[in-house]
């Protein structure tokens, strides 16, 4: 079976400093794949290179058989490789409804389509009551739900999530990760970058661990959870 996304020998550098040093990733259809690691490991840089926010300095990013390395972000998202950026990044001066509309554009229109599929509101029922409120008035958890819903509006073939649980309380973290599991069961392929190692590995089919821009470990999520070195380095002593 061919991977949906096949990244090989990817390098990203900022002004001569390599943030990502020759990493390779494979994502197969219907999987949740995670990239974990400490701050500054190169996780977000990898994701941003995949979605064209940064141009990789070398390497291949093959998505559905096409090498998209170096494409602009707006061209990549039209191939339905959709990123939900770190920090939830909403348009604060737009309403929840309008923020959802912004996810509609990937289908190649000059104007934004003004529609919200019913299934999106079924997945995120809390947004239904807040459609006409300003996005800036949402709590962190609600904003994350909106960011996720907006990502789904673009009908992604591969959804890339950058730190979706960052700054959320433990209940909300659980809710977001549960939601990812549900979306995977519905057939969505997800690549998630997370610092929340334990809970992410629990829901991941496959995981990569980055350290200083290098791949230091990879394997099935549950296998890595049992790796004593990983537990010691990233999760801490003892399992809760």
């Amino acid at each position: 079976m061919k991977p949906l996304l096949n990244v090989s020998s990817l390098k990203v550098n900022y002004g001569g400093v390599y943030a990502v040093k020759k990493i390779s990733i494979k994502v197969y259809e219907g999987q949740i794949v995670s990239i974990t690691g400490a701050n500054g490991a190169g996780k977000s840089s990898t994701l941003n290179a995949l979605t064209g926010i940064y141009a990789p300095s070398s390497g291949e990013i093959v998505f559905r058989g096409e090498n998209i390395a170096g494409f602009h972000a707006h061209r990549i998202v039209k191939r339905r490789l959709v990123q939900v950026p770190e920090g939830r990044h909403l348009f604060p001066n737009l309403t929840v409804r309008e923020n959802l509309f912004t996810g509609n554009h990937c289908l190649g229109r000059f104007f934004l389509g003004k529609f919200i599929p019913e299934n999106i509101l079924n997945i995120f029922p809390m947004l239904r009551d807040r459609l006409d409120t300003s996005a800036s008035s949402l709590s962190g958890g609600q904003a994350q739900m909106l960011a996720l819903a907006r990502g789904l509006m673009a009908q992604p073939l591969l959804l890339l999530l950058d730190e979706p649980t960052l700054g959320l309380d433990p209940i909300m973290v659980k809710e977001v990760l549960n939601l990812l599991s549900i979306l995977r069961k519905q057939g969505l392929t997800i690549l998630v970058v997370e610092q929340n190692v334990r809970q992410t590995l629990e829901i991941s089919d496959y995981a990569y661990v980055l350290e200083s821009g290098r791949m230091v470990m990879e394997g099935r999520g549950t296998e890595l959870l049992n790796d004593s070195m990983l537990v010691k380095s990233y999760i801490g002593f003892g399992k809760s």
């Binding site: 064209g52 926010i53 972000a73 604060p92 737009l94 554009h105």
Partner: peptide, 17 residues
């Protein structure tokens, strides 16, 4: 809406295609 998206965050606008 696109005009306002660009005004608020051009990079995020690109991420929306």
């Amino acid at each position: 809406m696109i005009f306002r998206m660009i005004g608020q965050d051009p990079m995020l606008t690109r991420v929306h295609g």
